[in-house]
């Protein structure tokens, strides 16, 4: 048990985090690159065509990973907010600062690709009967709210904790929002089946799983890089950053 405790304390120290996370960051970066390349090419070129939707279903290989990532990123934001409020751990604030822009972009990509996918499938650029699309839109509003709140509060410490409160409140509301949206879309469903939730044979599902793993690794890479940058910015007056500068010639 005390191994976990020391890890927790170590995680809290900026210097330890900055140095120890470097290998994880580059590692995740390479795995992400490989996985996303393989998964995308496999999904685009080798996976079989869908008998109903034809080739437009191949958009699933970018849409689903992004939407899944968007939701897990918000879960991480909520838990980082909880840690910041309860244990006052500065590293949790650094994590939130790093996750919000990445989460917001990923949600926007998921939304856009979902809308484009709707066009050939249902004939409209925006499909209100697709529960995942609508809840992704709401998720984007939650991200924008977090981003706007941080911009609005001048003092960094207060902005961090205010966003933490909003993230925790948002996290508690997400299941309720998702349920109400899903119930609402089935209300307007009528006959059309939800194309984006289909049971897939293995040769269609495999590239999707590879891409989802790749997306999570990409997310890990981006968040770690963003956090280490934020740490540099916050700790730039400290000795260890000074020492780092003299040691390192090329920067990253």
């Amino acid at each position: 048990m005390n191994g976990l405790k020391t890890l927790w304390h170590r995680l809290g120290s900026p210097r330890w985090f900055y140095q120890m996370m470097k290998p994880w960051q580059t590692g995740l970066g390479f795995v992400a690159l490989v996985a996303l390349l393989v998964g995308t090419v496999w999904g685009l070129a080798f996976a079989p065509e869908d008998y109903q939707q034809g080739n437009s279903f191949r958009i699933i290989y970018v849409h689903v990973p992004m939407v899944v990532l968007a939701q897990s990123a918000y879960m991480m934001l909520g838990s980082a907010g909880f840690v910041l409020l309860v244990w006052r751990m500065k590293m949790a604030d650094v994590a939130m600062v790093a996750i919000v822009p990445v989460g917001m972009t990923v949600t926007a990509i998921g939304l856009f690709s979902g809308a484009v996918w709707g066009r050939p499938t249902w004939g409209t650029w925006w499909e209100w009967t697709d529960a995942r699309l609508v809840s992704t839109l709401v998720l984007l509003f939650l991200y924008v709210g977090l981003y706007a709140l941080r911009e609005a509060i001048p003092r960094a410490e207060s902005a961090g904790r205010a966003c933490a409160v909003l993230a925790v409140v948002g996290l508690i509301n997400i299941p309720i929002i998702k349920y109400s949206v899903e119930w609402w879309t089935t209300l307007h469903q009528g006959a059309t089946f939800t194309a984006t939730r289909m049971s897939m044979p293995i040769e269609m599902a495999a590239p999707l799983i590879v891409n989802i793993i790749g997306a999570y690794c990409l997310f890990g890479y981006l968040v770690l890089l963003n956090m280490r940058t934020e740490l540099l910015r916050r700790e730039r007056d400290t000795k260890w950053v000074g020492a780092l500068r003299t040691e390192v010639i090329d920067g990253v």
Partner: peptide, 18 residues
Amino acid sequence: MGRHGLYVWLAYGVSVGS
């Protein structure tokens, strides 16, 4: 991509680009 080329490449182009 069958008749869906525009949509598939539009979605992938913007996503990968972003």
